[in-house]
Amino acid sequence: MSTERDDWPEGVARHVLPSVDSTMDEAARLAPGLSGSAWIFAHEQTAARGRRGRAWRAPSGNFSATLVMRPEGGLAHAALYSFVAALALEAALAHVAGPHARLTIKWPNDVLLNGGKVAGILLESLQGAETIAIGIGVNLAVAPERSEIEPEAMAPVSLLGETGMQIAPVDFLPMLAQAFDHYDRQFRDYGFDAIRNAWLARAARLGEEITARVGGETYRGTFETIDQTGALILTTPEGRRAISAADIFF
């Protein structure tokens, strides 16, 4: 897999903006006019958002981008691109961070660096199930303060703070785009098994006890694997449980 600075996947558009409210919102605006996949990158986001519409701070030096694409196979298949994106993000960060950085993926798609959250992914469907937007935020230079996140959330870290490595966000974009193209091709050529195996090899706390919070219910058990739908398989005292969506705590 090539991740040279000037490499760019063939047939994929690139929109580089000085400032935008949110790359996810810009993706929704551009989607109807796109003929293929496109990356939308912003040097500045003024109204960035994370999961469940939560406000998300995007300081200067950090990375913000959204990939818009039309995957085949409907909504269930599209949701699996969360794992494709996580693998691509981990690969791009590994290229920058060097061999001594400890990178793992927290189910389903947060990337951890030395045990702290360095990056997150937000996947949303646009125009029904035909188009998806994959929003990616990476703490390249600055990590949020503890007071800015939920009390039980994973401690945030930055690439610079953990490794001393610096990279401009606009230079990180082609690395990520090329890595995504690599795993997207694997997904299309070999199916989810190839993605699932690669993801499990990088999974945080696999085989260990974790807590999953689903609505008002809390389940504690051993993180056994993920299934063919991407659901987390948790072995609890009450038996084996498949969890499709949850907040995970270590």
Rank of each mutant, 00 (worst) to 15 (best):
M1T: 14
S2Q: 11
T3E: 11
T3A: 12
D6P: 03
D7E: 15
D7S: 15
W8V: 08
E10C: 13
G11S: 09
G11T: 11
V16L: 15
L17N: 10
P18A: 13
P18Y: 02
P18W: 04
D21A: 14
S22L: 03
T23K: 00
A28F: 08
A31P: 03
P32G: 06
G33K: 08
G36C: 10
S37C: 06
A42F: 00
Q45A: 01
R54N: 13
A55L: 05
W56R: 04
P59E: 05
P59D: 01
M69G: 02
R70S: 11
H77C: 14
A78Y: 01
A78E: 01
L80T: 07
Y81I: 06
A85T: 15
A88G: 12
A88R: 08
A91F: 01
A94G: 14
H95R: 15
V96Q: 07
A97G: 04
A101Y: 02
W107G: 02
L112C: 05
K117I: 00
A119Q: 05
S125V: 07
S125G: 11
T131R: 10
G135D: 02
G135Q: 02
G137M: 07
G137T: 02
G137L: 03
G137D: 00
N139Y: 02
P144D: 05
E148N: 09
E148P: 07
I149F: 13
A153Q: 08
A155F: 01
G161Q: 12
G164K: 14
M165F: 06
M165E: 15
Q166F: 05
P174R: 12
Q178I: 06
Q178F: 01
H182G: 08
F187H: 08
F187I: 00
R188M: 10
N197S: 13
W199H: 03
A201G: 13
A204F: 03
G207S: 14
E208V: 05
I210G: 01
T218H: 04
Y219V: 11
R220P: 04
G221Q: 07
E224W: 04
E224I: 10
I226F: 09
Q228Y: 12
T229M: 12
A231S: 15
L232S: 06
T235N: 14
T236W: 10
P237N: 10
P237Q: 09
P237H: 14
R240K: 13
I248D: 01
F249D: 05
F249N: 06
F250S: 15
